[in-house]
Design a binder for these strands. Structure first.
Lengths: 121, 121
DNA sequence: CTGGATCCCTGAGGATACTG
DNA sequence: CAGTATCCTCAGGGATCCAG
């Protein structure tokens, strides 16, 4: 997200839009969900857990989450390098929301399964 | 969202990713939030409430929400035309999630206000 | 292992004009 | 009022290569 976008964000009044401005991004919620489930988490663990993501994108989205104060990064001077990501105190406030999103995802899936024998029709 | 994307959706296992696949789109959550707060809602009311959206985009996103079984559309043969949008029974299951998203948006805003006298630094 | 730096591309999003 | 039809832009996302 550009610096310009950051300035735009300050003008937002709608709380939902405000939340979206921080959570949008193809992988943000999945990353957040993965770290919420188990923390801390290493870079490689995240990469494995979030199928389809590339290291480049993972890095980019992690940086934004970090910049927004939701996660923090700890580097260990080991060989090979180790980096752990965990929720900040503020990041933990996303837990109820993440939980509801997960629950609704499950509801949605069940609902669609109910509606769709649409392979046939 | 293309028909191809719909097929892709069936492969998704992660509930969060599944929810995101339906809710992603720049205006989806704001539309949903607006209809959740007060239902039914007319096209023009939505357009007014969601600042920045164009009629074209509003239509497109409403169609997707309708196709996904979250909202429904009722047309009245009046002059001028009237169209009302409301949550479906399933759409109402988004309420707890929407509420948490809104709450977190408020938290986030308060949090950033706390961190940022960064105009000066 | 954990990324940074580049370049490229697609499709979501937007602008405009028109209509029942 | 509530859309549809077109066309076009641009930035988010991805691929690739390189490095501490």
């Amino acid at each position: 997200m550009s610096a310009n976008k950051l300035k735009e964000r300050k003008k937002i009044s709608c709380p939902v839009e405000y939340a979206v401005s921080v959570l949008s991004g193809k992988w943000k919620l999945r990353i957040l969900y993965a770290i919420t489930k188990q923390s801390p988490k290493r870079f490689k663990e995240l990469e494995r857990e979030i199928s389809g993501i590339t290291p480049t994108m993972l890095t980019a989205q992690l940086r934004e989450l970090e910049r927004d104060g939701i996660i923090e990064r700890e580097v260990f001077a080991t060989v090979p390098p180790t980096v752990e990501y965990r929720l900040t105190a503020f990041g933990k406030t996303t837990a109820p929301m993440m939980n509801e999103i997960k629950n609704w995802g499950l509801l949605l899936k069940a609902h669609q399964a109910g509606n769709n024998g649409n392979e046939i029709s």
